[in-house]
Amino acid sequence: MKKQLLIPFALLTCGAFAQTPSGHSILEKVDANMTSETSITTSKMIIHGRRVSRTIESRSWSTGADNAFTEYLAPARERGTKMLKLGDRLWMYSPDTDRTIQLSGHMLRQSVMGSDLSYEDMMDDPRLAQIYAAEIVGTEAVEERPCWVLQLTANEQDVAYQSRKLWVDQERYVPVREELYAKGGKLLKRINLSGFKRIDERWYPMRMVFKDMLKNGKGTEFIVATIEFNAEIPSHILTKAALRR
């Protein structure tokens, strides 16, 4: 009798393990959706400050995880401002001063245009599977969609967020919610992702709400108007010369 009960139980258990992918494989699938070799994005950032809300429009070109070029399109005060990030160096160009200023180190973790995004948040496109070790710590439904809850711990020291908590849609393999933590375990940012759209073979969130937990504001909406993956980017765009052009 015992044997008769044990066999189906063992089969069920094995089946369950076979169905649940590892944390690492989930992250790889998330990366496959969220990152690409190149991308060209037109976006709108709505910054909800304590006094006023502002909308900033920009167009970005990025290659790989660390290189990106952004040009601000609106409002008038920001138009023509450009940012270039190559590796861990970032240059900013302001048409008013006709100066190109380099930022590095901790400055990259400062807020972009008073938003809840840092320069790193804005311009990095991290491959999570390469940087973090992932462990599935549970399952949870978010917006009625079943999600895995992943605990990510950085494999290296020099990363903006030492650990992350990720809620990943079990069907689409996209993050729907993310919490970013400092080394000491302090929650730094919370991101809610929504408006998922099927683009080519991937799912991508067209709306992200960032909330810097250390700031008093009401958060920043990042809305993707258009996005092209693996598009050809002329080599001159990701150069310092393009800043003054």
Binding site: I47, G49, V52, R54, I56, R77, E78, T81, M92, S94, D96, T97, R99, I101, L103, S111, V112, M113, G114, S115
Partner: peptide, 16 residues
Amino acid sequence: ATVLGSTMYGSMAMHN
């Protein structure tokens, strides 16, 4: 010298 800071509304401020 150029000063890089933030405007009252959080935008980037650069001034020579």
